[in-house]
């Protein structure tokens, strides 16, 4: 694929918004029944009486929805080699039924792998945005990305 994204294409400071994804109540409940069955995620009546005032998505569900936006936005057409982990995720605002989510990806830093000349490490900040342009979730992480032109050092 000619438009495949490589390490070289992720310039520090580069920023792009991808998506969108509308969140349904049924999705929130289905995910949480399987993975995070707190009343605020699975029981609309109980959630209405909570400080959140209604059903909210599990944080891991929000992360997972953001991952799908990342995949569709750039990752599936990139030379991604996966991620060794996540430095930090901050849940800043609740995600509610009807919210329309997008992801904003900013390249914070990057470096060539010292040991593997065919790849580099891209450090990125991903912000999950809702329909009011509020940041509901912020994630800092590293992705290993294949290089278009392998070279030693640099």
């Amino acid at each position: 694929m000619g438009d495949r994204l490589y390490f070289e294409d992720f310039e520090v400071g580069g920023c792009a918004v991808h998506g969108e994804k509308t969140v349904s109540e049924a999705e929130i409940i289905a995910f949480a029944r399987e993975f995070d069955p707190q009343p605020i995620h699975v029981d609309p009546a109980a959630a209405a009486l909570s400080p959140f005032g209604g059903l909210i998505a599990s944080g891991v569900h929000s992360c997972s929805m953001m991952m799908r936006l990342m995949c569709d936005g750039y990752m599936l057409r990139s030379a991604s080699r996966g991620s060794p982990g996540i430095d930090e995720v901050r849940y800043l605002l609740p995600v509610r039924p009807g919210d329309v989510l997008r992801v904003r990806m900013t390249v914070v830093d990057r470096r060539r792998s010292a040991s593997r000349p065919e790849m580099g490490i891209v450090q990125a900040r991903h912000e999950l945005l809702n329909q009011k342009d509020e940041v509901v979730l912020e994630m800092t992480s590293k992705v290993m990305m294949g290089c278009r032109v392998p070279e030693a050092g640099a």
Binding site: Q38, P39, I40, P51, F52, G59, G82, S83, P84, G85, I86, D87, E88, V89, R90, Y91
Partner: peptide
Amino acid sequence: GGRGFIASPGFEDLRW
């Protein structure tokens, strides 16, 4: 009983 649970502000240092 879940009575004390409020919310999570997030997590750190997730390693795969």
